[in-house]
Nucleic acid binder design. Structure first.
Length: 112
DNA sequence: GGTGTGACCAGCT
DNA sequence: AAGCTGGCCACAC
């Protein structure tokens, strides 16, 4: 196995999020094996904008479906705009049908 | 190599 | 019910 940084693992997982789906930091953390450290995922996302690739960080929200990271985008409204562009219903900075749109990598994806 | 930090989560008060 | 605290682990200085 290549000793890639934890960040890149998060980026790869986020890239695998299908269009029109969202996931939570904790779900990604659990998928990567660091279940207890959802903060790591969020922190990795903090550097996502430093990556050359376009990371769909807007598809990653907290456990409550709340757009916690919207403030870290170019503009606070950018994240919501992107989500709405994908057909999401945002209400009070929260995904309305988050539960239906939730995408769990641990269930959808499989460990190589 | 210790300290600080972070876009979270769950539990306690 | 709502606010606060601790815990968790990887990365930067």
């Amino acid at each position: 196995m290549k000793s890639e940084g934890f960040f890149e693992l998060v980026y790869q997982t986020v890239r695998q999020i299908p269009f029109g789906r969202v996931t939570s930091y904790g779900a990604i953390a659990e998928y990567l094996g660091t279940k207890g450290s959802a903060r790591m995922v969020g922190w990795a996302m903090n550097a996502s904008h430093l990556q050359p690739d376009n990371i769909p960080a807007h598809r990653v929200v907290n456990r409550n479906g709340l757009l916690t990271g919207k403030a870290h985008f170019g503009s606070p409204d950018l994240m919501q705009k992107l989500l709405e562009n994908e057909g999401f219903v945002i209400e009070n900075d929260k995904i309305k049908n988050f539960k239906e749109r939730f995408w769990d990598p641990s269930k959808e994806l499989d460990l190589d």
